[in-house]
Nucleic acid binder design. Structure first.
Lengths: 241, 241
DNA sequence: CGTTGCTTTGAACTAGCTCAAGACCTGTGG
DNA sequence: CCACAGGTCTTGAGCTAGTTCAAAGCAACG
């Protein structure tokens, strides 16, 4: 069940076999989620973290005026609230983007594993930092990139991340989000998200039907989105190619 | 020299006295910087991290089109590239915003200290995660907040962070940045940054002369900026009040 | 087979941009 | 001590990317 997580950690740095064993023996409880289910609410005090095993979660934050900003989409293999192991408190909500499945792990068990193995401690720390690096890149996109590039970049990142966990088949992968979700992630209105998607399809950079993304030419999309995979900090040489 | 850093860590969670001693005995080298000096370049492989002891650093990233996005301003007490302890590689540049002083610490020494004290390991991990939390909040601002709120929020955050390290006197603190810097941080043009600042001054929310910020009424600014300090994860009760 | 939520389109509007020029300030060399 | 140079700030004016509002089309689900 934690296969994707372990696979991703291995892509992000060297993992000792005994650390993998420690992870595999982590007690966990599988939970199935429907779209919009909240794994954790903004402000919650939490004592467990989750690992996405199927579907997508998203981080989101609702502003005073009711506007919603989606801070990230988290594909399988992600541990989107691993940070709470150290912070203990949510500063945003963690919500199921689509029907999803997560493995819940107690902080006490994670802490015990980290104490037992400093190298596992480092692997997890590293994962939370790569997560932050993705956030920084998203910041760059929101601040500087124009609409088409921004949207293209989001899809390029998802494409590569899904490919790295083996979930891309013939240039296409599941990504069940609404255009409203995309708009809230990119800081646009729903109407404009719709028009951007049409623009990307017209340019034959990607097609998206609300459930599945198809990338006809990865190199073309990469170039258009000015996508440079180095911020994902994969140590594997094939990454991003 | 590491006083502000230790002070900040103590505000973010309980610190054992022996951990403080470990930090104080970290070998470090003080470096003075002029405005625009690069502590680390985008893409650098690094084996040391810095702690800001005076002045401001900023993270920044230059897009293909030459546009620059400032990802964060780092006041004294921050360790803006502590993440490189785990990642080893810069995915953005670290630059002096103004004349500044930093303490450089070797990763090998930091790693030794973390191995020696798991609680110190946690304090540092925690610090990198709070840094990420600030980034998420900035993302919310860039995505959803309108110009005036966005600018006000940046100043509110800097005000509070400076106050927590004792660098606010009578509602005013040093913040030597140009309007171009502010624009590049907030995703605006320089011209617009200028007009926003005029708007904030006209409303008597804050005054800024290019060197120093003066906040005539903290409560008013807080309300206007919709500032809620909880994302800074200070454990001290006085924080944000 | 009707309801509900999502997508698509049009049209008017606006926040923020770009371009351009002038004012101001600060440090430097003569 | 002055003049000049380079950067920063300020202002105006026209433009554009993206918004809001409103309505219609579509598709999935009970």
């Amino acid at each position: 069940m934690l296969d994707d997580f372990i696979r991703k950690l291995r892509l992000q740095g060297p993992m000792r076999d005994d650390d993998e064993a420690l992870l595999r023996h982590l007690p966990h409880r599988l939970v199935s989620l429907s779209r919009a289910d909240e794994v954790a609410h903004d402000g919650d005090i939490v004592t467990q973290s989750c690992i996405v095993t199927d579907g997508f979660l998203q981080r989101q934050k609702v502003a005073q005026d009711g506007g919603r900003q989606i801070l990230s989409f988290q594909p399988p293999g992600d541990a989107p609230d691993l940070f709470s192991l150290q912070l203990g408190k949510m500063d945003h909500a963690l919500v199921a983007t689509s029907p999803a499945q997560v493995a819940m792990v107690q902080h006490s068990d994670l802490r015990a594993a980290c104490r037992q193995s400093p190298t596992l401690n480092d692997l997890l720390w590293r994962d939370t930092l790569i997560d932050a690096a993705r956030g920084r890149y998203w910041l760059l996109m929101l601040g500087r990139a124009e609409a088409l590039t921004r949207m293209a970049h989001l899809f390029a990142e998802m494409y590569l991340r899904m490919r790295m966990i083996g979930r891309v088949n013939q240039g296409s992968f599941d990504f069940p989000v609404t255009q409203g979700d995309l708009a809230d992630a990119l800081g646009h209105s729903t109407v404009h998200a719709n028009r951007i998607l049409q623009g990307l399809r017209r340019r034959e950079l990607l097609a998206f039907d609300g459930h599945r993304v198809t990338v006809p030419g990865w190199e073309r999309l990469k170039a258009f989105a000015q996508f440079d995979a180095s911020y994902l900090h994969y140590t594997d040489e094939r990454a991003g190619a």
